[in-house]
Structure formats: structure tokens, C-alpha cells
Amino acid sequence: MAKIQKGKQNREAFIPTSSMSDIAFLLLLFFMVSTVFVQEKKFWVERDRWPRADTIERIPRNNTTTIYVMKDETILIDDVPTKIESEEDVMITNALIAKKDENPEIVVCFRTDRETKYGAMSDVMRQLQDAETLVVAFEAQKQH
């Protein structure tokens, strides 16, 4: 009679963890390579200086260009600070016409200090109309 073998001896189950550190470092490298740091600029509007609102919506980044308007009415477009002194000053219009040629769906985002006088904003918006970039977004932070 054949000898009936008893159940095989149970081996200890184990998960190989030797490559765990490789995976972790790969992830770390991915984060480090893909992170883009925002450079500290002289002209900048901190998030806590934005106006507050309830009805904010997310704006996809791919079609946007940002115009910063500081409290002292300095306007920053493409990292170039400027001020609108007169109606003949069309620097913003020209910059936006060039952007619109590249991307007709462009949305102009305003990152404006909440204490800026509306006159400065109005001057910029007039230039936007001249450049026919009519879709704008006023960046704001959610009201608590």
C-alpha cells in the first residue's frame, strides 16, 4: 500500500521588503523632480491679501495667464512690472494680444490686493477689452 503523505510542512510566509527603500526613493525622486517652486518675487500678492468670496470656482490652469495688481497700483504681467499712466499706455493690450494669438481660449486671472483702488483694475480691464481677451477671473479665497 502506498504511503499516504501527511500534509506538507508549512513554510513561514514572508513578504520581501528589500526593494521597499528603492520604491520609496523612486517616489521621493519623482516628487523632487516634478515639484516647481514658486520663486519669491519682489512683486507678489500673498493669498491672505486676496479678497474673500463665497461663490468661487476652480479655474483650470492650462488656459490662464495671471496679472498681479499690487496695492500701489503696480501691475505685473509676464514678470514685468508696469503702471498705467495714460490711455496711450498699451503695454498690457499688446502683451495680451500676443497671448491670445497663441491661445484664443485664454482666461485672464487677476491676483489683486483687496485694498487696491478699483480705478487701477478698471484701467486694466479696459486694456483687456481692447485686446479682446474678455474672459476674466478674479482670484479670491473662500470665505469662512
Binding site: 521621493l28 516628487f31 523632487m32 476652480r58 476674466v136 479670491a140
Partner: peptide, 26 residues
């Protein structure tokens, strides 16, 4: 390595665009 990842994940702030959208008249 995982501690470093957690640190990066916790301290990263994404520059999200949020605001009020309006279409200006021509």
C-alpha cells in the same frame, strides 16, 4: 525615505486657481 515623502507631501502647497469668473463685454 517614507518619512521624507510624508514631509514633502505634508508641506507642499498647490498653487490652485480659484476665483469669480466673468465675461467682459466687447
Amino acid at each position: 525615505a517614507f518619512l521624507l515623502i510624508v514631509f514633502f507631501m505634508a508641506t507642499t502647497k498647490f498653487d490652485v486657481k480659484e476665483g469669480i469668473k466673468i465675461v467682459l463685454p466687447a
